[in-house]
Simulated scan of single mutants.
Amino acid sequence: MKALQQEYNKALSGMQGRDILVIGDMVADIYLDGRISRISREAPVLVLEQAGEKVVAGGAANVVNNIATLGGKVHAVGLVGSDKSADGLRAILAKNGADVRGLIADDSRPTISKTRIIAGGRATVSQQIVRIDRESKAPMAPAVEAELRAYIKSILPTVEGVVISDYGSGTVTEGLQSLLIDYCQIKGIPSIVDSRYAVRRFHGIGYVKQNDAEIAAAMGRNLDTTEDIVAAAEELRQELAAKGVLVTRGELGMVLVEHGAVHEIPVSDKSEVFDVSGAGDTCVAAVILALAAGVAPATAARLSNIASGIAVRKLGTSTVSVRELAEAIEKSREEYTSK
């Protein structure tokens, strides 16, 4: 166990300052907190007095945030509107040191946002009562795509890793996808895609991250056992000509399938799970930083498993810091040696 901890600590040190590009659907998660005042006379609904508003980085922006807090140098690339949500996202990411020059504003569309209305009172537990989503379904304008392409080309010479975070909102066009995947292949730069609905389009990507439900949907069949998941992951790996497929399985841990190798990774911490929101983003952030540092894929996956275990014990989409990850590594060693 001591040797493994040394390997983790060496990887964590190597991850610091790695230059990563993240392209994808940047989402503003907005939380409106309301205190229950009374029942409306207009309809049988609650009247809430707004008590607070918070904007949190979601979607690809949460990957950016996690890379920044884990010590990476990260460039956020994506579409936003000219609105308050965009201002909030830029402020959140820039506060953690992310480069936000690649967040291109398109006046014709809003920033993708998910507004959650939270209701509570002095004698009641606060809970979400409704979510309002806002995004444009229109294809990206050619002029905007050209601006994104120009920015990507300008920073690619410094980049050591690429993340494509595709939530299905149209930021990752085929043209931008090809530009990034081709560049990574030519330069030998690690890349990873996390695609909610269309992972099979990313041929030539280095690594693929899916959860068990996503890969089952992608392959069009139920995956009831570990053997089923391994078979599906290998099928997907071969189809995309990828180096590896990482499947997250909640309380069952992770499975990394490489050419000729399968790594089953149990959960790192079985303490209470508060919220799985954004844990996949933390996983991707840790994996790409480790790969950029030259860490073996299996070690990168195990390290990301520890980082994800921290994230699920926090409420809402959240980030994991270098200090938290280092402490979790030390804790896992202490628990192992005490047995």
Rank of each mutant, 00 (worst) to 15 (best):
A3W: 05
Q6L: 00
Y8M: 06
G17V: 03
I20T: 11
L21N: 01
I23R: 10
Y31M: 14
D33C: 10
G34V: 14
R38F: 09
R41G: 03
P44Q: 10
L48A: 05
Q50V: 13
G58S: 12
I67Q: 04
G71C: 06
G78I: 01
D83Q: 05
S85V: 00
I92F: 07
A94P: 02
A94G: 00
D99H: 11
D106A: 11
D106C: 14
T111R: 05
I118R: 05
A119S: 15
G120Q: 12
T124A: 14
Q127H: 15
E135L: 08
A143D: 12
A146M: 07
E147S: 12
R149T: 14
R149F: 15
E160S: 09
V162R: 09
V163M: 07
G170L: 09
G175K: 02
I181F: 06
I181T: 06
C184W: 01
P190K: 02
I192C: 05
V199E: 03
F202R: 00
Y207W: 04
V208K: 00
N211V: 00
D212Y: 00
A213D: 01
A218Y: 00
T225H: 07
T225S: 15
A233V: 14
L236C: 00
L236Y: 07
E239T: 15
K243M: 04
K243S: 13
G250T: 08
V255C: 11
V255F: 00
H259Y: 15
G260H: 13
I265D: 10
P266A: 15
S268L: 01
S268G: 02
D269V: 09
D269P: 03
E272G: 07
G278H: 01
C283M: 15
A285K: 06
V287E: 02
A290T: 12
A292P: 14
G294Q: 15
P297F: 13
A298G: 08
L303W: 10
K314R: 13
S318V: 08
E327I: 06
S332G: 04
R333D: 09
